[in-house]
Amino acid sequence: MGNNFSIEVSGTVAKVTLVDKIDTTNAPALADELKKLIGKNLERVVFLVKDLKYISSAGLRAIVFAKQKIGQNVQVYLIGAAKEIHNIFKMTGFDSFVKIQDTYED
């Protein structure tokens, strides 16, 4: 997790674990890795963020990208967000297209 993220694909679900900070320094690498998910017929991209403490607009752009480019029918989840992170998703209206849940079960 040198870049503060890791991605694991299983069937039609990609789980993306984000920790600590996603900012202008590591968001481009995250976006590059998410691009590799295009064409994999995913149904869900699940961001596991319980240890995420900071996300700037660069990180949010990578998440919007996941929704826009990976596939029309992909549902994006945000799991375990701290209150501060949840509030950023509300502030930016991202809560309208990301399912925000405390926990995730396959």
């Binding site: 700037s56 607009s57 660069a58 949010l60 752009r61 919007v64 990208f65 929704k67 826009q68 950023i88 502030m91 930016t92 209206g93 309208s96 297209f97």
Partner: peptide
């Protein structure tokens, strides 16, 4: 437009918008 659908979501301008909100 933070109420735009995700497909129509413009990627630019989000950072300065957040700064103004914060």
């Amino acid at each position: 437009d933070i109420h735009a659908s995700v497909e129509e979501r413009a990627i630019g301008g989000l950072g300065i918008f957040m700064t103004k909100k914060i």
